[in-house]
Amino acid sequence: MTTAAARPADLGKLWTLPGVYAPQADTHLLAQALQAEGITAGTDVLDVCTGSGALAVLAARMGAQVTATDISRRAVISARFNAARAGQRVRVLQGDLTGPIAEERFHLVVSNPPYVPTPLAHHSRKHRSSVAWDAGHSGRQALDRICAHARDVLHPHGVLLIVHSALCGADETLRRLDTTGMRSSVAHRARVPFGPVITGRLSWLRAQGLLHPDEDTEELVVIRAERS
């Protein structure tokens, strides 16, 4: 496991429609993990919750055959545009997590899903942009589903790389992946300043015991799991 700053990766120029998650520290940390996987021209990569398509385009630039999914139509448009502008071939499909490719298998799956714990009062609000980060009361609304189904879309010895905040419980992610027969571990950690979403709900997060009163940074984790 490495612990380091989520230094910016070379993700190229990216454009996003309003409400689409633009690359941030978690994107760059996951990009570092992706670059360490030794992608070759024969690698089939799936990017789940692609957002801007940053990771999908990076994998394509490394020579992989890439498919990306996102439930947001705006994200699909943004990812397709960014791939075309970068001169890379990326198949971008609209749909829920691995749903659009349920019958396919990949050597590598990467995902930066929504993971911010969300007060119940936020659940009834219809903010388009909040879909990119709000993830239920525990922050695990998408995480648990990815953990449950990642093995099904991986070749034997295929690898899942998933990034999320330690607020959601890295141990719970490891436990859920292990119960599906995956060998998992925390591959990367980084401490980053609070972003605007976390800052806006600091009082609630502290009241829930998810943040200590003296904490002024957020820990990000990249979990690597291999299908045995």
Rank of each mutant, 00 (worst) to 15 (best):
residue 18 P to C: 03
residue 16 T to C: 14
residue 217 T to G: 01
residue 85 R to S: 13
residue 91 R to Q: 14
residue 162 I to L: 15
residue 107 H to F: 10
residue 169 G to V: 04
residue 152 D to Y: 08
residue 186 V to P: 05
residue 17 L to P: 04
residue 25 A to M: 05
residue 191 R to Q: 14
residue 9 A to S: 14
residue 213 P to W: 11
residue 203 S to M: 00
residue 149 H to M: 02
residue 134 D to I: 03
residue 165 S to L: 11
residue 80 R to P: 01
residue 108 L to F: 06
residue 117 P to S: 03
residue 12 G to C: 08
residue 30 L to E: 13
residue 141 Q to N: 12
residue 166 A to V: 09
residue 31 A to W: 09
residue 16 T to P: 00
residue 216 D to S: 12
residue 147 C to Y: 06
residue 208 Q to T: 02
residue 149 H to K: 13
residue 151 R to M: 10
residue 146 I to F: 12
residue 192 V to S: 02
residue 123 H to R: 12
residue 172 E to W: 01
residue 90 V to E: 10
residue 212 H to E: 15
residue 28 H to M: 13
residue 221 V to R: 09
residue 166 A to T: 14
residue 191 R to S: 09
residue 195 G to I: 07
residue 79 A to W: 01
residue 105 R to P: 01
residue 66 V to L: 10
residue 2 T to C: 11
residue 194 F to S: 03
residue 215 E to S: 06
residue 188 H to L: 15
residue 4 A to C: 06
residue 67 T to E: 06
residue 132 A to D: 02
residue 38 G to F: 06
residue 48 V to S: 11
residue 155 H to R: 09
residue 71 I to R: 03
residue 89 R to M: 09
residue 166 A to P: 00
residue 225 A to P: 01
residue 31 A to M: 05
residue 92 V to G: 02
residue 48 V to H: 12
residue 168 C to G: 03
residue 137 H to Q: 05
residue 154 L to V: 04
residue 110 V to T: 06
residue 83 A to R: 01
residue 122 H to Y: 12
residue 115 Y to H: 15
residue 91 R to Y: 04
residue 73 R to H: 07
residue 176 R to C: 02
residue 127 H to S: 13
residue 159 V to M: 12
residue 150 A to T: 02
residue 57 V to F: 04
residue 92 V to F: 02
residue 81 F to V: 12
residue 136 G to K: 05
residue 44 D to Q: 10
residue 45 V to H: 05
residue 177 L to N: 00
residue 163 V to Q: 01
residue 27 T to K: 05
residue 187 A to Q: 03
residue 154 L to M: 11
residue 13 K to Y: 08
residue 64 A to L: 10
residue 82 N to Y: 04
residue 66 V to D: 14
residue 11 L to C: 07
residue 17 L to T: 01
residue 196 P to W: 05
residue 59 A to D: 13
residue 81 F to Y: 15
residue 203 S to P: 00
residue 80 R to M: 07
residue 222 V to F: 10
residue 99 G to M: 02
residue 109 V to K: 00
residue 49 C to L: 09
residue 184 S to F: 13
residue 140 R to F: 14
residue 25 A to L: 07
residue 56 A to Q: 07
residue 183 R to H: 15
residue 76 V to R: 08
residue 53 G to Q: 07
residue 118 T to W: 11
residue 79 A to K: 01
residue 94 Q to T: 06
residue 40 T to K: 08
residue 93 L to K: 06
residue 127 H to E: 12
residue 101 I to F: 06
residue 116 V to L: 09
residue 135 A to M: 09
residue 20 V to E: 09
residue 204 W to P: 00
residue 160 L to M: 04
residue 72 S to P: 11
residue 118 T to L: 00
residue 185 S to M: 10
residue 64 A to R: 06
residue 54 A to M: 05
residue 31 A to R: 04
residue 114 P to K: 02
residue 85 R to I: 03
residue 159 V to G: 01
residue 131 V to L: 15
residue 190 A to M: 13
residue 74 R to F: 14
residue 125 R to Y: 09
residue 161 L to V: 08
residue 65 Q to P: 06
residue 81 F to I: 12
residue 167 L to G: 07
residue 64 A to E: 11
residue 143 L to C: 07
residue 32 Q to P: 00
residue 4 A to T: 11
residue 68 A to L: 12
residue 89 R to F: 04
